[in-house]
Write a protein that binds this DNA or RNA. Structure first.
Lengths: 250, 250
DNA sequence: GGGTAAAGGTCTGAGTTCATACCAATTCGC
DNA sequence: GCGAATTGGTATGAACTCAGACCTTTACCC
C-alpha cells in the first residue's frame, strides 16, 4: 500500500533500512590501502612480482597520484612491498603469504562476525553463479590456458599459505572468465573476506585433497560447458568451507 | 606458474586487469545524489512520503551533514523533492514516477551499453539467488506480510510508471528477506541499472500480465519454501526481461 | 659515455569533505 | 499561550583529495 501523501515521518518501509547504506567507504586513502592489500594478500600479485607504476595505478583506481602514494607508503610501512627508484624500478611485493593458522584470532567484534556470516551467504550464491556462467561462456584458447594454469597452481601448492593464495587466484580466475565486471568485483569482495576469516580463525586445512578434487571436477565441468554440474560442484565446495567456518564462529 | 622474483614489470596476469577497479566512485556528493535519486526513483520512498531527517540520513550514508545537504539541494533543484522547515517538517518526495517510454533514448555510449549488458548477466545470477535464499529462510509473519504487500502493490498497479516502481520494490523486498546486506546491495545496484535502461529504451511493457503471473508463482514458491522452484521462476523472469532489452540494445 | 625514457619523490594551490558549533522556523504537549 | 523538541539553514576551520608541474634516480640504447 502506498503511504498517503504527507504521512508521518519515515513511513514504515523496512526496505529503507536495508537500502540506505554508506554511500562511500572511508577515505580514498584507506580504500586504496585495503584494495591493494587485498589484491596482494589474495596473490593476484604474488611474492616478487612488480606492481604497475604509480601513474598507472592511480589512473586505474581513479585516485590522484598523491593519494595513491600515501597508500603505497602505508603498504611499505606494513612490510607488504618495497620500492626502488629509477627506470626498471617500481614497487615489488615482499609479503610472504602467511600461514593461515599462524595468527591467533584477533578480537572478533559482533559486527565483524555478522559481516562474515553475510559474506558466506552471499558467496554461496555468487561463486556458483560465476561457475555456471563460465561454463556457459565460449572460452578461447587463452582463457582455457588461464584456467588450467590457475588450477595447476592450486593443485601444485604444498604449503598452506601458498595454497591459500593459489586458491583465491583460482576462484578469481573463474570469475574473470565470465567477462562480467560486477561478477569479478563480487567474487573479489567475497574472497577478501574469506581470506580475512581464514587468517583470523586458526583452522587446519585438513581436507586440501578433498578441495582439490572439487577443483578438478569444476574445471572439467567448465571445459565441457556443463553449467549445471559446474554450479553444483561449486555449491558443494562453498558449503564445505562454510560449514567449517560457521562451526568455528558459533 | 608463479613468476620468478624480480621478473619483468607487471607480470602478465590477466586477473589484475579485472581486479583493479576504481577504489571509490566520484565525489561523496555525487554518490549521495545517485543513491538517493535511485532510492526515490525505484520507489523505496514513493510520491508524498517523507525522507528521514538530514541528521539521520547523513549518519546512515556516512557522509557529513554539509555534504548531504548539498546532495539534497541538487535533488530539490532537479524537482525530486521539496523541503519544509521546522518540527514535523522535512523533505518529501514530489517526483511523479515517469512513464518508461516517455523519454527518448539519450545518447547511449558504448561504455554504458557494455555496463548494461554486464548488469543483465549479473542480475541473472543474483536475483534468482536471492529468491532461492528467501525461500530457504524461515520467514516470520511480518516478513510474509511484507512480501504479500509488495506483491499486491505490483499486481494492483495499473499505470506503467507505478508498476515499474512497485516492481522494483517487489524485487528489493525479496532481497531484503534474505537478510543479507550484500544481497540487498547487489540487487539494489542491479535494479537501479535496470530502471535506467527501461527509462532510456522506449519499450512497451506489453506483457505485464505475464510478468505478474511469474510474480505470483514466485511468492507461492517462497512461501512454500520451494527454493528450487523459486530460483527457476526468477531465472525465467530475468531471462524474459533480458531478452527484450538485449534485442533493443543490439 | 651520453642521451633518453621510465620510474619514484616533491611541491603547491584549488577544490571537497568533515566535524562542530549555532541560528531560525515550526509543531507538539502541557 | 508558552516552552521544549525537532527540523532545516548557516558558518568556520581543519583535514583530505586532486591535478599538474617539476625534480631525482636509474636503466636501457645508440
Amino acid at each position: 500500500m502506498l503511504p498517503s501523501p504527507g504521512a508521518g515521518p519515515t513511513t514504515g518501509h523496512d526496505l529503507t533500512e536495508a537500502v540506505l547504506r554508506p554511500a562511500r567507504g572511508y577515505h580514498a586513502f584507506e580504500a586504496c590501502v585495503e584494495q591493494l592489500a587485498a589484491t596482494i594478500r589474495l596473490g593476484v600479485y604474488p611474492l616478487g612480482s612488480t606492481l604497475p607504476s604509480e601513474r598507472e595505478l592511480s589512473e586505474r583506481l581513479k585516485v590522484s597520484r598523491s593519494t595513491l602514494r600515501e597508500a603505497m607508503a602505508a603498504l611499505r610501512e606494513a612490510g607488504l612491498v618495497e620500492t626502488r627508484r629509477g627506470r626498471g624500478g617500481g614497487t615489488v611485493v615482499t609479503l610472504k603469504p602467511r600461514t593461515p593458522s599462524a595468527r591467533a584470532a584477533a578480537r572478533i567484534t559482533e559486527g565483524k562476525r555478522q559481516d562474515w556470516l553475510d559474506s558466506l551467504v552471499f558467496r554461496r550464491i555468487v561463486e556458483p553463479g560465476a561457475a555456471s556462467l563460465a561454463a556457459r561462456a565460449t572460452l578461447d584458447e587463452g582463457a582455457l590456458a588461464q584456467l588450467d594454469e590457475a588450477h595447476e597452481d592450486v593443485a601444485r601448492a604444498r604449503r598452506p599459505a601458498e595454497h591459500r593464495q593459489a586458491d583465491s587466484r583460482f576462484h578469481l580466475t573463474i570469475a574473470a572468465l565470465t567477462g562480467s565486471h560486477r561478477m569479478v568485483e563480487a567474487v573479489t569482495s567475497v574472497q577478501a573476506t574469506l581470506h580475512e576469516m581464514l587468517l583470523a580463525i586458526p583452522v587446519l586445512e585438513a581436507n586440501i585433497h578433498h578441495s582439490d578434487r572439487q577443483h578438478a571436477s569444476l574445471v572439467r565441468a567448465i571445459r565441457r560447458g556443463n553449467h549445471d554440474r559446474a554450479r553444483a560442484v561449486m555449491e558443494e565446495h562453498c558449503d564445505d568451507t562454510a560449514a567449517l567456518l560457521r562451526g568455528l564462529l558459533g
